[in-house]
Amino acid sequence: SRSVIRSIIKSSKLNIDHKDYLLDLLNDVKGSKDLKEFHKMLTAILA
């Protein structure tokens, strides 16, 4: 869910600018399909 993804971003080791950017992107995501794609992208970034 959106709140879980937000929590993953906030607890990541990324610097604050990257976190803010990803949180802004997350706010722009519409629909469950796009949310799944965003989660895939985030997982790849944090891997």
Score class of each variant (00 low, 15 high):
I8T: 05
R2E: 05
V4H: 11
Y21N: 05
Y21I: 06
K33S: 07
A44Q: 08
M41S: 04
R2S: 04
S3D: 13
L23A: 02
R2N: 05
K33N: 10
S1K: 11
V29S: 04
K30I: 08
I8R: 06
D20V: 15
D34M: 14
L35A: 03
R6P: 01
L25I: 06
S7H: 13
K13A: 11
L46R: 02
S32R: 09
G31A: 05
K10L: 15
S11A: 12
I45A: 05
K33H: 11
D28K: 15
I16V: 10
H18I: 14
L23D: 02
K30Y: 06
D34T: 06
D24C: 14
N27I: 04
S3N: 14
N15I: 06
H39P: 01
E37P: 03
D24Y: 15
Y21C: 05
L14S: 01
L42K: 00
S3K: 11
I5S: 02
L25S: 03
I45F: 11
L26N: 00
L42Y: 03
L26D: 00
G31Y: 08
A47F: 10
K13G: 10
F38M: 02
K19W: 03
I5A: 04
F38H: 01
A47G: 09
K33Y: 07
H39L: 14
I45H: 04
D20Y: 15
I16R: 14
Y21V: 05
I16T: 12
I8V: 06
L22C: 02
M41L: 07
R2C: 04
S11R: 13
L22T: 00
H18S: 08
L25A: 06
K30D: 06
L46I: 09
S7V: 07
D28C: 10
Y21S: 05
I5T: 03
L26P: 00
R6K: 10
D17Q: 12
L42G: 00
H18G: 04
S32T: 12
G31P: 02
K19F: 03
I5N: 02
L42Q: 00
L14I: 04
D34N: 13
R2V: 08
I8M: 15
K40C: 04
I45C: 04
L26T: 01
K36L: 13
T43N: 10
I9C: 01
Y21L: 08
H18P: 02
K19T: 03
G31S: 13
I8Y: 04
V4M: 13
D20H: 15
